[in-house]
């Protein structure tokens, strides 16, 4: 260990603000990218389900008319 206590670890020899800010922003940016990737997939699935339901409704209406 390069640090003697938790306190010293958080303080980073006086550079705590800079070190943790840099790591925090990096983590947040990557988190956004990961969530965005999963979100795109969920969106595709939702669109697909909607499209299917629309087709089913159309088919039913056609049956009712005829």
């Amino acid at each position: 260990m390069a640090f003697e206590s938790w306190q010293a670890f958080i303080e980073m020899g006086g550079y705590g603000f800079y070190v943790w800010l840099a790591f925090g922003i990096s983590f947040a940016a990557i988190a956004v990218l990961v969530i965005n990737g999963f979100g795109a997939r969920v969106k595709l699935q939702r669109e697909f389900i909607k499209q299917q339901q629309r087709q089913q409704r159309l088919a039913q209406r056609k049956k009712e008319v005829s």
Partner: peptide
């Protein structure tokens, strides 16, 4: 000092 630790993401 400890500021260089940013290197591990930078």
């Amino acid at each position: 000092g400890d500021s260089y630790r940013i290197i591990f993401v930078h």
